[in-house]
């Protein structure tokens, strides 16, 4: 590794560190301001996205799930967003634009249950959750 390259890498790390810190700080502020000044928290979300895009640094996952993918609204569970677990998928519906975001979790187990459903179909004892509820 050449000296110039190493220096560049060091700077990149510093930038990445600062950018993530700033994103967390803005996230914290957006949460604080949501009650009284929701327009400010929206502006802070814009800034988070701006920092992440301009410096090409990933937004932390915890922050990503509090921002609407479609209208970039700041989501507060119970106030303008609904979080539901459904068949191995976390479904977040935004109260501002009404659209949904789907995040799968426990993918391996979900796959297994899918296999189990196939087995039941073959046996003729199919399980239909829609009918039960």
């Amino acid at each position: 590794m050449s000296k110039v390259f190493r220096k560049k890498k060091k700077q990149k790390n510093l930038m990445r560190e600062l950018a993530t810190q700033r994103m967390w700080r803005l996230f914290e502020l957006a949460e604080q301001e949501f009650g009284e000044h929701p327009e400010r928290s929206e502006r802070y979300v814009r800034l988070i996205r701006g920092i992440s895009m301009r410096n090409r640094i990933r937004t932390p996952g915890e922050i990503k799930r509090r921002i609407c993918k479609h209208c970039y609204a700041f989501l507060v569970p119970g106030r303008n967003a609904r979080y539901r677990l459904k068949d191995g998928v976390l479904v977040i519906s935004c109260g501002t634009c009404g659209k949904e975001m789907r995040y799968p979790y426990r993918s391996k187990i979900a796959k297994k249950s899918g296999e189990r459903i196939l087995e039941r179909k073959e046996k003729g004892t199919e399980f239909r959750p829609s009918q039960e509820t």
Binding site: L18, Q21, R22, W24, R25, L26, E28, L29, Y44, L47
Partner: peptide, 20 residues
């Protein structure tokens, strides 16, 4: 969950000013 935000005099001009 929240990463440790550390604003130093040396990095203030690169850091977030909103909220200060």
């Amino acid at each position: 969950m929240i990463s440790d935000v550390e604003i130093l005099p040396s990095n203030l001009i690169y850091h977030e000013l909103i909220g200060l």
